[in-house]
Simulated scan of single mutants.
Amino acid sequence: MFNKEVWRHFDYWLFGAVVVLCIFGIAMIRSTIAGNIDLANSDKSQTEFVILGLFIILVVAMIDYRYWSSLANLFYVFGIVFLIIILLIGNIAFGSTRWIVIAGINIQPSELVKIIMIIVLADFFARNKDRIHDIRTILKSFILTAGMVIWILLQPNLSTSIVIIIVWAAMLWLSGLPVKYIIFFAVIGIVLAAILFPFLEQYQQQRIFNFLFPNPNASYGDNYNVEQALITIGSGGWFGQGYGHGSQVQLRFLKVRHTDFIFASMAEEFGFIGTILVISILIFVILRCIRVARRAADPFGSLLAYGFAALLFFQTSVNIGVNLNVIPVTGLTLPFVSYGGSSLLSLVIGIGLVESVAAHSKPQEF
């Protein structure tokens, strides 16, 4: 299971980029919570998760990724059982039942489920790579995905459900299904979304309505966070107001500035140039994952890395899109930068899996 040669092929560029993002995230969290007693220990908590996360990357990278293929079914059952437990005894916050307290730590299982589904779908598509054009294979993969997503929707957690569905579609395409079929399924998905819209929670419907039909006269209400995010981003200019000196952030006009809107926070403090630099590092991480996928020794390893790259790309795009008010508000964080222990741990596990694929495939060239 362990390979002594793992460090020879370990992707140090990928690891280094993740470390830089995590350290920058801690610094941004520290700035955004300054003077807020309720959030006083958030930066310390994130630091502890980062240290644990880096250790997890190294441990997961040492384990041959093929080992996880044999546990895919077990992971799938574990994920469903855990999500059902959350519905029964989980903590309710902001109208959703998503968290459970374990050893004094709030855990959000749906974050871990993202990685579980990447493993499960990579295993499924790798075993059925010669039957990817068969409608039965496609339906089985969808049923496999829906079997997990339904429990997340019941929390309710629409954003994470969409992430998993997007990952499924991306891995379906990467497994060899022609784009025209993906487009066909996308159209069906849009039609189904329109049909199911009345069944969404009221606050979810309201977010969509606020995006499509914003009220320009609302000084404080449903559009407040997005409007303040745009003001915050605009006030940063080219080079920003300086670390810890953003007026919108430090005077707390911008809400949830250490999680959902941390992109706006860093735009105010480091400006357009600073945000481009951070986005560039995130793109670099995604490209390294794709590089690993292309050089993988087998379809399972390739799909693991591709699946995680798709997750990173979508989650990054959505978070930035929300901050720029080009898509409705969601609860997706900026990978490795936003505050959130469960989110960070799921991401580092994903990075560990990608590193394992790199370490147990042919040598990388730099």
Rank of each mutant, 00 (worst) to 15 (best):
R98P: 01
G90C: 02
I105R: 14
P109F: 08
L87T: 07
A122E: 05
V120T: 06
Q108A: 04
M117Q: 12
L121G: 03
I119E: 04
R136Y: 08
A126P: 00
I89P: 04
D123V: 05
S110Q: 07
V101M: 13
I119N: 05
G90K: 00
Q108L: 04
V120G: 02
L121Q: 03
G95E: 00
I102A: 15
I116W: 06
I118N: 04
D134P: 01
I115W: 07
I100F: 05
N106E: 14
R136C: 08
Q108K: 02
T97K: 11
I102T: 11
N128Y: 03
D123P: 09
A93I: 09
R136P: 08
G95Y: 01
G90H: 00
F124D: 00
I135L: 10
K114F: 10
Q108F: 02
L87N: 11
V113T: 10
D134F: 07
I118S: 05
D134Q: 09
N91A: 13
I135H: 11
I116G: 08
P109T: 06
F124S: 00
F125P: 02
Q108Y: 00
R131Y: 14
L87I: 06
A126Y: 07
D123K: 10
I115C: 10
E111K: 02
I92N: 02
R136N: 10
L88K: 15
I89W: 07
I86F: 07
S96L: 02
A103H: 14
I102C: 13
I132L: 08
I100S: 04
A122K: 07
L121M: 12
G104W: 09
W99M: 05
L121E: 07
T137H: 01
V113W: 08
V101S: 14
W99V: 02
L87H: 10
